[in-house]
């Protein structure tokens, strides 16, 4: 296969029927492997890893916190990519996939925030610290909220897809900008504060391998959810079109 043939093969999945048929086939595999990885990773991490000498047993929260935080950002990146595909190639599946991914990403953001807060309570002595990372996740959550609200607010699906795509692009730039602004702002507030959430730096192998399995589980779960929810959105769109045709014929 040449490169362009391969690209054409990829674009075939932009056909809603083809997408539904294919995801129907692969979805059981994704659900099963997601469940397998999540159960294996979480059980491994929860029952069979030692406590950290500084954080005690709270280190076990890492198996939920890091994967969900990772997926919170990846989901937005995926939405950005599919929004661009919609704007350039006008494939409905692409726009609907972005819509389907948003609630998943928002949930991941909430999980990352909640586990972070619960972990922070005994570690920092406070539920909430205006740490740059926590703050930018809160802002990311607000972007998810606005994005989903805009989808819900507009009746015409093509208009909604166009507007949310542009919002996603503009929002990405501003979310990135906020990340740097927040970094700067908090340094400005307390100079030399030495709180660091950067656990990856000192994560030992015993924690690392179950963490990898959990990350794989979250990625697979995300893919399964997005495929499934995109299918739902395609059906919702088809229902809408059929009803409109009926109204015209009546």
């Amino acid at each position: 296969m040449t490169m362009s043939q391969r690209m054409n093969a990829l674009w075939e999945y932009a056909n809603p029927k083809k997408f539904l048929a294919t995801t129907e086939r692969v979805l059981p595999f994704f659900w099963a492997s997601a469940a397998l990885c999540l159960v294996a990773g979480l059980v491994w991490g929860f029952f069979f890893t030692p406590d950290d000498y500084r954080q005690g047993s709270t280190v076990k929260i890492i198996y939920l916190h890091v994967p969900s935080a990772l997926m919170a950002i990846n989901a937005w990146m995926m939405m950005l990519a599919t929004s661009l595909v919609w704007l350039v190639r006008r494939h409905h599946v692409s726009a609907l996939a972005a819509r389907a991914a948003a609630p998943v990403g928002a949930t991941m953001t909430v999980i990352a925030l909640i586990t972070g807060a619960i972990w922070g309570q005994p570690m920092w002595g406070t539920w909430w610290e205006w740490d740059p990372r926590l703050t930018s996740f809160l802002i990311l959550f607000l972007f998810y909220l606005g994005y989903m609200a805009l989808w819900e607010a507009i009746d015409n699906p093509d208009t909604a897809a166009d507007l949310t795509s542009v919002l996603c692009m503009v929002g990405s730039v501003f979310a990135l900008l906020s990340r740097y602004a927040v970094n700067f702002w908090n340094q400005g507030l307390h100079q030399g504060a030495s709180l660091s959430l950067d656990k990856e730096e000192h994560v030992a192998d015993v924690f690392y391998f179950p963490l990898l399995v959990c990350i794989a589980g979250f990625v697979l779960l995300f893919i399964a959810l997005v495929f499934y929810r995109t299918g739902t959105e395609i059906r919702a769109r088809r229902i809408r079109a059929l009803m409109a045709r009926e109204r015209v014929q009546a």
């Binding site: 929860f46 005690g56 929260i61 619960i118 309570q121 005994p122």
Partner: peptide, 12 residues
């Protein structure tokens, strides 16, 4: 930290 860890798992 039992409460902390368990509540984080439960919530997530």
């Amino acid at each position: 930290y039992a409460d902390t860890v368990l509540s984080a798992y439960a919530a997530s």
